[in-house]
């Protein structure tokens, strides 16, 4: 009973603080503090509900138990992280996005190809590409290469479509100006069109960053060596070791947010001139 009361108090206090803070004018501090307080409140409510209602840790472990498990098995989590995120997701992300940009630049020279590839690319980007995972595992084996291959296929089309659109985003006036400067194709590409395409490309990179992690983890459900986050999640669920599953999810969440945040920071640094970044 005490725990439930504690949960209600936590909910009430958190909500009141946030209401107070939200009424104040928006500053950097409140903009950061409000979501943080919201998150802490949620975790407290979770903890007290699980303890108060005596929910079996097999169904939903309390956050404290997850934290304990996390601290106890950092070594294991680290090997899984390296296997899935560094080897699988990041390498696939780099290859896929790099290839997409190169091909987009190549397509851009041929309007015929552009008109054909854009609708097809848009169509493919909406398909459940994750289904390619079993095929890739069959082609490239159980290790991280097959995961990277799935990631390459998943990130390729969103990146391609965004880059092609970005390369078309320059105005006729700007291109005319380049022509009056007697700039060649490559000069126009590097000085005008690629910089102008940056906001679009970063949009693609952001979408691809979440896709990459999903691809790498889900591909491991179809077969993997005895390490990796997807492998650990599916086997631990089988053993009902849900605290380890949640610890693995915490790692995935941190990795995902850090990945996305890194891309967003890079965007801020490189496209500081764009209206969406100035506000």
């Amino acid at each position: 009973m005490g725990w439930i009361v504690f949960g209600l108090v936590a909910w009430f206090v958190g909500w009141q603080i946030n209401v107070r803070l939200a009424r104040r004018p928006k500053t950097r501090v409140t903009r950061l503090a409000v979501p943080v307080i919201f998150g802490i409140t949620l975790v407290l409510i979770w903890e007290s509900l699980v303890r108060g209602f005596d929910i079996s840790p097999v169904l939903l472990p309390p956050p404290s138990m997850i934290a304990e498990r996390f601290a106890a098995s950092t070594g294991l989590l680290w090997t899984d992280f390296v296997q899935t995120v560094i080897k699988g997701a990041l390498s696939g992300y780099a290859i896929g996005c790099g290839a997409a940009v190169l091909i987009a630049v190549a397509i851009d020279r041929f309007p015929f190809l552009q008109r054909g590839l854009l609708p097809v690319g848009n169509f493919v980007a909406a398909l459940p590409i994750i289904g390619m995972a079993p095929i890739m595992v069959m082609w490239f084996g159980f290790d991280w290469q097959s995961k990277a291959a799935v990631v390459v296929v998943m990130v390729f089309f969103p990146m391609l479509v965004n880059t092609v659109q970005g390369l078309q985003s320059t105005g006729a006036m700007q291109r005319d100006l380049m022509r009056t400067y007697a700039a060649g194709y490559w000069q126009t590409l590097f000085k005008l069109r690629l910089p102008a395409a940056m906001p679009f490309m970063f949009n693609g990179l952001k979408i691809a960053s979440t896709l990459a992690l999903i691809g790498a983890i889900v591909a491991e459900f179809f077969g993997s060596p005895v390490k990796g986050m997807g492998f650990r999640i599916s086997t631990s669920v089988g053993q009902l070791a849900l605290d380890l599953v949640w610890a693995e999810i915490v790692v995935a969440a941190i990795a995902g947010s850090a990945f996305y945040g890194g891309v967003a920071l890079l965007e801020k640094a490189l496209t500081f001139w764009h209206p969406s970044q100035r506000g």
């Binding site: 946030n18 928006k26 409140t30 979501p35 919201f38 999903i214 983890i217 996305y260």
Partner: peptide, 21 residues
């Protein structure tokens, strides 16, 4: 102010990893 950042953060979590659980 409190929910919107979490909605965005929720998508950086590879939710499909949660599917088996």
């Amino acid at each position: 102010m409190s929910v919107m950042p979490w909605v965005i953060a929720s998508q950086t979590i590879p939710i499909l990893a949660l599917a088996p659980m």
